[in-house]
Design a binder for these strands. Structure first.
Length: 950
RNA sequence: GCGAGGGUAGCCAAGCGGCCAACGGCGGCGGACUCAAGAUCCGCUCCCGUAGGGGUUCGUGGGUUCGAUUCCCUCCCCUCGCACCA
C-alpha cells in the first residue's frame, strides 16, 4: 500500500477529535510532570498563511514530545480581536475598497457569498477564526484543547482584564497624564496608522524651542531646533516674509509664532489665545536676544522657512548646518536688497559663523567644509540634504563641545544633548513642542497633527517594577539565549506606555468606559485565563467581580467572603500555572513579551512567572517576504491538500530551527513529500516482512549503537526546541546509517529483520511529535499501539558500543581509500591487497599516545630502542604522521582504537569489499612476510593499511 | 543612528580552535535498473593529479595560536525591532 496522506490524516483527525485525547484536565500527575505551552493567540483580521502554520506547530511538537515523556500537557488557544484592525478591515470592506476585497477574495479565497458575513467586526473575526485558523489548526493536527478557546471581546474576558487593570491602578502602576498622539483635526480624534491616507511613515519629533526674546519688547520668539546644543552658534533668525505670523499668549507669555503653530500649540495642551496676526515682513529687521549668550541678533527674511514646521521661526547656525551656511552666503550676496526690508546690509555682511564644537577631520566651520566637499553651489542642490545628514550624524557622534559650554565642555554631543536640553529647560530658557516630520492626511481628508491627550499609562519605567521584570528575565529560559539581552535592553528603554484607545474592540476601562484597553495591554497575563476559561462559563459575567478574581488568583484569605466557585477554579489554575514555554516571535520581544513579563512579575508570585520563551523567526515564500495584500502567500489548507499535513509540518520544522527564518520553496516541499513517501514504503516493507530473531552480528550491533546516539541527540534537541536538529537526526542522519547498513549486510537474515524492526519502532517514536499522522499509523501497524501511546525512547546501555562504531569507521575508510586510488589511476583491479601496519608501528603509536603529541620527546623515547634506531628515516616519517594522528583525536577515541584488532576487522569486511569492487581481497600483516609485488606494505600506518591494486 | 542577529561552495544550510575541502537538502553530471520516462540505487560535483596526494577557499583587512571557518579587532554588506502598529 503506497503513501496516501489524505486518507490517513483524515482518519487520525477523526480519531483525535472523537477521543478528546488532547483535552487536558488536572489528574494525579504532580508538578514535575505537568507542562503548559502557549503561543500568542492569533489575530483574525485576515486568513492564516503558512508562516502562521509554523508558529503554531512548534509548540505542538513540544507538547507532543512532553506527552510521550509522560507529562500531562495543556496546549490551549484563543483569539485576539482587540483594537482597530478588524474594525478597519470591516470599514474598508463596507466602503467597497477594492484592495481590501481583493485581498479577501484572492489571497484568502473568501467566496463572494460569504462576504456578507464579514460586515460586522465579530462576524469578520468569527469567519476567519472558524474557516481559517481553526480549520487550519485541525488539519495540521495540532494537539489543542479546544474547550478553552475564547475571544478578547468576551464579557468574561473583560471581567478578567478589568480585574487586572483595577489592581494595577490601585498599586499605582497605572497613571493618568498627557501624551502625544496623531490627531485628526477634522474628526477631532486620535488616529492610527490604518486611518492615515498620506504620510503613513511620518514620525513625530520633539523639537526644542529656544526662547529668544525680542530686544525691544518682551515677546518670546521660540526657535525650533532638533539640535539644542547649537544654541551658542546662532547668528541670526529667519522668518518667511510672505507668511502670516501671530502674536499669541501661550501659557501666559507673549509668543510670536506662525499662524499654523498656534493651532499645534493649542492641541498640545497649551493655553493659547491669538492676540493679533502679524505679517512676516513686519518681523524682518527686528532684533532678538539669545537667552543663553545674551547676544542680540537680527531677524532676516528667507523664503525657505516652512511655517507649517514647528514654530515657523528658525535660527541659523551657519558653522554647523550646511543649509544655513548656504543661506548665509546667499543672504550676503543680496544684502543690498535686504536694506529695503529694513535689514542693515552691513550687519549681514558682518555675520561670522560661530562654532560650537570641534569635529575631527573638519576645520572651524564644518558646514563650510561639508558644502565644499560635496561641491554644493546653491540651496537647490539635491546633494545638500545628504551633506546635511552626514554632518549632523558626525557631529552628533563625534563632535566635542567647546569651552563656552561650561560643564558640558569637551563632551561628545551624543552624551550630553539631553542633559543640556533639560538644563536649559529648568532655567526656563528652553521649551518644547512636537511636530510631524512630514505632512500627514487622514482618510477623511483632514489634516493630522500631533496632539497631547489625557491618557492612562502603564508605568514601565517605574524602578521597582522594572527591577521585578528583570528578575523575571533572569529566571527565564530564553531560547535562543541571545534573546535574553534583548529583554534586558527593552526594560531599560521602556518608558510609560499609553494603554488605552478611544475606540476599538476589547475591554473598556472599568472606571471610564469611554476608553478601551489596547491590544498589547490586554494580552499580558491571559495565559492564566486559559486554565479556567472552559469552566468560567458556569459563572454569570456580572458575578465575575474583583473579589472573584482576587480569590481565584490570591486565595481564600485575599477577600472577606471568598466565592466557592472561585476557590474551585483556583485549584486548576494552580495546577497548570506557570506557563512552561511560550512560543513566540522575535519581533514581539520589544513589546508584548516584555510586557507579559512585567505583568507577571507584578501580579503573580515568582513560582508563577513564565519558565521559558522561545522566539521564532519569520517565513519567506520562494525567497521573498510573504504579503497577504500582494497575494504572495501560501495557505496551509492548499499546502496540506497538495502534500499532506505531515509533509507541511516536516518541512516547516526541518528546514530551520524555530528562531531562524525559513523559506517555503515549493520544489523542496515537493521533495520532502517524496522522502516521506519513500520512508513510508520502506517502513511498510519492514512491517510486512518477517519478525526475525535477535541473533545479532557485528553490523547489527553497529546500527543499534548508532541508534542509541540518535536517541540521545534527538532527546537533547527536543528539550531545547531544536526541531531541525531533532528531525535531521531522527530522519536524515539515521537514514544515512541505514543506507550503509543495507549495503553492508544481508537484510534477509533473521538478525537483520529484528534489527530493522527495532530501529523502525524507535525511530517512529522519535518522529511522532513532528509527523504525528504517519508515525502513529506506522507504529500502530508495527506494534498495535500508536507511537503517542507509548513512552519516549531512552538510550539502551547494552547497545552502546563505541568499539563497533570505530571498527566500522575503519571499513568505511578503506572503502574510501580504495575508491580514491581507483579513480585516480582509472583502473579496475582484480585483486586488492591490504597490509596492516607492523606491530612496532602500533607500539610507536602507543608511545606517542603516552608521551603526548610532541615530536621531540617522542623521538627521544623511541630512539632508546636499538631496533627502531636502525630503521632511521622510516621511524622519523612515521612519528610525524602519528603525532598528527594523535593530535586530531581525543583520548576516548584513542583508547577505543587501541583495543581494536585491525586485521580481524578487514578480514571480516573482506567479502563486503570484494562485492563492492568485484575483486579478490587479501589481508596481510606488514611484518608477516606478505605477498608484496609493488613494495607497498611499508606504507602501512596504524589504522590506515597500505593498499595494493592489481 | 540605536539595539539584536547574520554574511560558509550554483542555491538553501550545518559547523563555531585541530577528526574541515567543510554534515545534510536542492540543483547539475555520470553509471545501474527500464522499451522509455519517472521513481529507486551507486558515484562525482573548488582547482590540479595515472596510488590514497597537492593547491586555493568559509564577506574584507589585520591580530592571537604550533594550528582559525571556528577566538579578538577594523571595515563593508544584509535582515529584524525602535513605541501607540497588531
Amino acid at each position: 500500500m503506497s503513501y496516501d496522506p489524505q486518507e490517513l490524516e483524515a482518519e487520525w483527525r477523526r480519531r483525535w477529535a472523537e477521543s478528546g485525547r488532547y483535552e487536558a484536565d488536572p489528574d494525579g500527575r504532580d508538578a514535575d510532570d505537568v507542562t503548559f505551552v502557549t503561543v500568542p493567540y492569533p489575530y483574525p483580521n485576515g486568513g492564516m498563511h503558512i508562516g502562521h502554520a509554523r508558529t503554531y506547530t512548534v509548540p505542538d511538537v513540544y507538547a507532543r514530545y512532553r506527552r510521550q515523556q509522560g507529562d500531562n500537557v495543556l496546549f490551549p488557544i484563543g483569539w485576539h480581536v482587540t483594537g482597530t484592525p478588524i474594525i478597519g478591515a470591516v470599514e474598508r470592506l463596507q466602503s467597497g475598497d477594492t484592495h481590501q476585497i481583493e485581498s479577501l477574495t484572492n489571497a484568502f479565497v473568501v467566496p463572494e457569498s460569504d462576504l456578507a458575513d464579514l460586515e460586522t467586526p465579530m462576524g469578520f473575526a468569527r469567519y476567519f477564526i472558524e474557516n481559517h485558523y481553526k480549520a487550519g489548526m485541525r488539519q495540521l493536527g495540532l494537539s489543542i484543547d479546544w474547550r478553552r478557546e475564547f475571544t478578547t471581546n468576551d464579557d468574561r474576558y473583560a471581567a478578567f482584564i478589568g480585574w487586572q487593570y483595577e489592581t494595577l491602578k490601585e498599586r499605582g502602576l497605572l497613571e493618568k497624564g498627557l501624551h502625544p498622539v496623531n490627531y485628526c483635526t477634522n474628526e477631532a480624534q486620535p488616529v492610527t496608522t490604518h486611518d492615515i491616507y498620506e504620510g503613513e511613515d511620518a514620525e513625530f519629533q520633539e523639537y526644542t524651542l529656544i526662547k529668544f526674546n525680542g530686544a525691544d519688547d518682551d515677546v518670546v520668539y521660540p526657535m525650533a531646533t532638533l539640535r539644542p546644543e547649537t544654541v551658542r552658534g546662532v547668528t541670526n533668525a529667519y522668518v518667511d516674509p510672505d507668511a502670516t505670523y501671530a502674536r499669541a499668549t501661550v501659557d501666559g507669555e507673549a509668543w510670536i509664532v506662525s499662524e499654523e503653530a498656534t493651532e499645534k500649540l493649542d492641541l498640545q495642551a497649551r493655553e493659547v489665545s491669538v492676540e493679533e496676526t502679524v505679517a512676516g515682513a513686519d518681523l524682518v529687521g527686528k532684533r532678538v536676544r539669545n537667552p543663553v549668550t545674551d547676544e542680540e541678533l537680527p531677524i532676516v527674511p528667507a523664503e525657505f522657512v516652512d511655517t507649517d514646521s514647528a514654530t515657523g521661526v528658525v535660527m541659523s547656525v551657519p558653522a554647523h548646518s550646511p543649509d544655513d551656511w548656504i543661506a548665509l552666503e546667499e543672504a550676503k550676496e543680496r544684502a543690498v536688497d535686504l536694506a529695503d526690508d529694513g535689514v542693515d546690509p552691513d550687519e549681514i555682511r558682518a555675520i561670522e559663523p560661530r562654532p560650537v564644537l570641534t569635529l575631527e577631520g573638519y576645520g572651524d566651520y564644518p558646514a563650510k567644509d561639508a558644502v565644499e566637499e560635496h561641491g554644493i553651489e546653491s540651496a537647490s542642490d539635491p546633494a545638500l540634504e545628504a551633506a546635511t545628514q552626514e554632518l549632523y550624524n558626525r557631529e552628533f557622534h563625534r563632535g566635542e563641545l567647546l569651552e563656552a559650554y561650561g560643564e558640558f565642555a569637551g563632551e561628545i554631543v551624543e552624551d550630553v544633548r539631553d542633559d543640556l536640553d533639560s538644563h536649559f529647560r529648568r532655567r526656563g530658557d528652553f521649551d518644547a513642542m512636537y511636530d510631524l516630520d512630514e505632512s500627514v492626511i487622514c482618510r477623511c481628508g483632514g489634516d493630522v497633527e500631533v496632539a497631547e491627550q489625557e491618557t492612562w499609562f502603564l508605568r514601565y519605567d517605574d524602578e521597582n517594577w522594572s527591577e521585578r521584570a528583570l528578575g523575571a528575565i533572569e529566571s527565564l529560559d530564553a531560547i535562543p539565549e541571545t534573546t535574553r539581552e534583548q529583554y534586558v535592553n527593552t526594560v531599560d528603554w521602556l518608558e510609560e506606555w499609553p494603554c488605552i484607545r478611544n475606540y476599538g474592540l476589547g475591554t473598556r476601562l472599568p472606571w471610564d468606559d469611554e476608553f478601551v484597553i489596547e491590544p498589547l495591554s490586554d494580552s499580558t497575563i491571559y495565559m492564566a485565563y486559559y486554565t479556567v476559561a472552559h469552566r468560567l462559563g458556569d459563572v454569570p459575567p456580572e458575578e465575575l467581580d474583583r473579589d472573584f478574581f482576587e480569590t481565584l488568583f490570591y486565595g481564600a484569605d485575599a477577600v472577606d467572603d471568598p466565592d466557592e466557585r472561585a476557590l474551585e477554579l483556583r485549584e486548576e489554575w494552580e495546577y497548570w500555572y506557570p506557563v512552561d514555554y511560550r512560543c513566540s516571535a522575535n519581533d514581539l520581544i520589544s513589546n508584548h513579551l516584555t510586557f507579559s513579563l512585567y505583568h507577571h512579575a507584578e501580579l503573580f508570585d515568582e513560582e508563577q512567572w513564565p519558565r521559558g520563551i522561545t522566539s521564532m523567526g519569520m517565513g519567506l515564500l520562494e525567497g521573498e517576504m510573504m504579503s497577504s495584500s500582494k497575494g504572495h502567500v501560501v495557505l496551509p489548507d492548499e499546502a496540506i491538500e497538495e502534500y499532506g499535513a505531515d509533509t507541511v509540518r516536516f518541512f516547516l520544522l526541518n528546514s530551520s530551527e524555530p528562531w531562524q527564518d525559513f523559506d517555503w520553496r515549493a520544489d523542496e516541499v515537493g521533495s520532502t513529500h517524496d522522502q516521506l513517501a519513500r520512508f513510508w514504503d520502506r517502513a511498510i516493507d519492514v512491517i510486512e516482512g518477517p519478525d526475525g530473531k535477535r541473533e545479532l552480528e557485528e553490523i547489527d550491533r553497529w546500527l543499534l549503537a548508532r541508534l542509541q546516539e540518535t536517541v540521545r541527540e534527538v532527546t537533547d534537541a527536543m528539550d531545547r526546541f531544536e526541531t531541525r536538529t531533532a528531525s535531521q537526526n531522527a530522519f536524515y542522519r539515521l537514514e544515512e546509517r541505514l543506507k550503509w547498513y543495507r549495503r553492508r549486510t544481508d537484510l534477509d537474515r533473521p538478525g537483520a529483520r529484528w534489527t530493522l524492526r527495532t530501529v523502525l519502532e524507535t525511530r517512529l517514536r522519535l518522529l511522532a511529535p513532528v509527523i504525528p499522522f504517519m508515525a502513529n499509523e506506522l507504529h500502530e501497524r508495527l506494534t498495535g499501539e500508536p507511537a503517542e501511546a507509548v513512552p519516549w525512547p531512552e538510550p539502551i546501555p547494552e547497545f552502546e558500543d563505541p568499539t563497533v562504531v570505530a571498527e566500522e569507521g575503519l571499513v568505511a575508510d578503506v572503502l574510501e581509500d580504495v575508491r580514491e586510488i581507483i579513480a585516480v589511476t582509472d583502473t579496475d583491479p582484480e585483486a586488492i591487497r591490504l597490509y596492516v601496519a607492523a606491530d612496532w608501528k602500533r607500539d610507536a603509536l602507543e608511545t606517542v599516545t603516552d608521551v603526548g603529541p610532541d615530536r621531540g620527546p617522542v623521538m627521544s623515547e623511541i630512539m632508546q630502542d636499538d631496533d627502531l634506531r636502525e630503521k632511521g628515516d622510516a621511524v622519523n616519517d612515521l612519528v610525524g604522521d602519528l603525532v598528527e594522528f594523535v593530535r586530531e583525536r581525543d583520548e576516548g577515541t584513542l583508547a577505543t582504537l587501541s583495543e581494536i584488532d585491525e586485521r580481524a576487522v578487514y578480514e571480516d569486511a573482506a567479502s563486503f569489499l570484494a562485492r563492492e569492487f568485484d575483486a579478490d581481497i587479501a589481508v596481510y600483516a606488514e611484518d608477516g612476510e606478505p605477498v608484496d609485488p609493488d613494495d607497498k606494505a611499508g606504507q602501512a600506518r596504524p589504522f590506515r593499511p597500505a593498499i595494493h591494486l592489481e
